[in-house]
C-alpha cells in the first residue's frame, strides 16, 4: 500500500506530470500566472478540488451509471468549485475579486476530469485522494515556476515586492498573454531535454 502511494506520487510529480508530459489542463489556470500570489491561491483551490472530487467519484464509482459518468463527475467537480468560490468570497475577498471568473473555470480544467475518469473510477477512495493531491501538486509547481518568471521578468517583482530595480527594463510581453505560451514552451523544452530524455526515447 505504502509503496503504491509513493509510486503514484512520484509519477504525478515527474514522469507523468500532467502539465509537461500530458499537456493537460493548462487552460483555466494559465491566465492567472502573471501574478505569483494569484497562482498560489488558484493552485491550492485546484489541489483541493482535484483531491475531493477524486474521493467522491471513487466512493460513488460502483453506483454511477456508465452513460452519465462524465456528467456526474462534472457535477461533483462543479459543486466543490462553488464551495471554493464561496469560501474565497467569505474569507479572502481581495483574492476572490482578483481571480474573478477564473475560479469557476477550475471546473473545466481537464486535469480534474482526467484524474476522475482515469484513476478514481477504478481505485479505492484513499488511493484516489493521494492521486488527486499529487497530480494537483505536480500541476501547481509547474504553474508556480512559470508565474515566478513571468512576474519577475514582466513586472520586476516577486510576490508583489520589487526585486529588480530601475535598471531592469520590464518585459511587458511576459505579463501579456503570449508570455505564458513562451514560458510554458521553454519550460517543456528544458524538462524534455534534460530530465525526461530517457522517457522521450522510449516513446
Amino acid at each position: 500500500m505504502n509503496k503504491k502511494i509513493g509510486k503514484i506520487t512520484l509519477a504525478n510529480l515527474g514522469r507523468d506530470n500532467p502539465v509537461f508530459v500530458q499537456v493537460l489542463g493548462i487552460c483555466s489556470t494559465l491566465a492567472v500566472t502573471n501574478v505569483l500570489k494569484n497562482t498560489l491561491v488558484m493552485s491550492i483551490g485546484l489541489v483541493f478540488v482535484t483531491a475531493l472530487s477524486n474521493v467522491t467519484v471513487s466512493m460513488l464509482r460502483k453506483q454511477i451509471p456508465t452513460r452519465i459518468r462524465m456528467m456526474v463527475s462534472t457535477l461533483i467537480i462543479a459543486s466543490y468549485v462553488i464551495l471554493v468560490d464561496i469560501v474565497l468570497k467569505a474569507y479572502m475577498p481581495d483574492v476572490s475579486r482578483q481571480l474573478g471568473p477564473y475560479v469557476g473555470l477550475i471546473i473545466t480544467n481537464c486535469i480534474i476530469m482526467g484524474r476522475a475518469e482515469a484513476f478514481a473510477m477504478n481505485n479505492k477512495p484513499f488511493l484516489s485522494f493521494v492521486d488527486g493531491i499529487s497530480s494537483g501538486i505536480g500541476y501547481s509547481y509547474v504553474l508556480l515556476i512559470i508565474a515566478f518568471f513571468r512576474e519577475l521578468m514582466g513586472s520586476g517583482t516577486i510576490w508583489g515586492v520589487t526585486v529588480l530595480g530601475d535598471w531592469w527594463v520590464k518585459w511587458s510581453i511576459m505579463v501579456m498573454a503570449p508570455g505564458a505560451f513562451f514560458m510554458l514552451a521553454v519550460f517543456i523544452w528544458m524538462v524534455k531535454g534534460v530530465i525526461l530524455k530517457d522517457a522521450e526515447v522510449a516513446k
Partner: peptide
C-alpha cells in the same frame, strides 16, 4: 529541436 516536438512548438506558435 527534439524537446520542442509536439506540445512545445505548438505553444510557441500559439504565442506568436
Amino acid at each position: 529541436p527534439k524537446g520542442l516536438e509536439g506540445a512545445g512548438i505548438s505553444l510557441i506558435i500559439a504565442g506568436i
